[in-house]
Amino acid sequence: MFDNLGQMLMLLWRTLRELGATWHQRRKVAEQLFEIGNASLLMACILSLFIGGVLALQTGPTLAERGLVSFLGQIVGLSMCRELAPVMMAVLIAGRIGSAMAAEIGSMTVYQEIDALKTMNISPVRYLVLPRLIAISVALPILVLFSVLVGWTGGALVASANYQIALSMEAYFNSLRSGVGLMDLLNGLAKSFVFALVIGIVSCQQGLSTIGGPRGIGRSVTKAVVNSIILILILDYFLTRVLMHLD
């Protein structure tokens, strides 16, 4: 499945070497940012609200039975920012944005637009991959930050509204504030930055290596999304390990 891991690393390297051209491509970066925000903000909001809510719902009653309900804010707060928001937002963006990137670049490959760029001495890496990679690695951490805040709110709503938990908003947020530090937030943002690189590179690489006409585009899209998600979940474990040591 990861026969193209080498090609992906190669593409990442080639993109990083083009970083100097970012300013020249700023318009395309902005377009991509707008597209990502447009396609994902509402969904991210709904998703995060319910994740925070269900987290409170699952743990709240048990904590309440044992008289530990005052820790609920901390539990929801930490799970949200260290784990759930980065992973869930990455999965969402892989499905929403990674697929679109693979499809767009894939169709450009199939219809020889990439070849045309090359004959004009325009590097597809600089022209197509760079702006997408920059945009996604800026957008995903911002989205995660947003998701964390919404998720906390979701947890707070459920904690105060559910009669088995019955934790006031104030108590919830006090617990959250005492248990969640800036490092925890940065931890999640660091993860999401790596996930963004994964999604961008996997999707662009799949797009660029599309073969076999329009059906090949469909195959590329599927592979981009599936491979991104698998890589994200695997990397999540190892990143968690590494970041634990840094705390």
Partner: peptide, 25 residues
């Protein structure tokens, strides 16, 4: 320069932007 069998214009750009792409890029 190559004129492709299918034209191979970039679909996301206008015709004018396509023609000027070499110069602008």
């Amino acid at each position: 320069a190559m004129v492709f069998q299918s034209g191979a214009l970039l679909n996301s750009l206008t015709v004018g932007e396509n023609v000027g792409l070499y110069l602008s890029e």
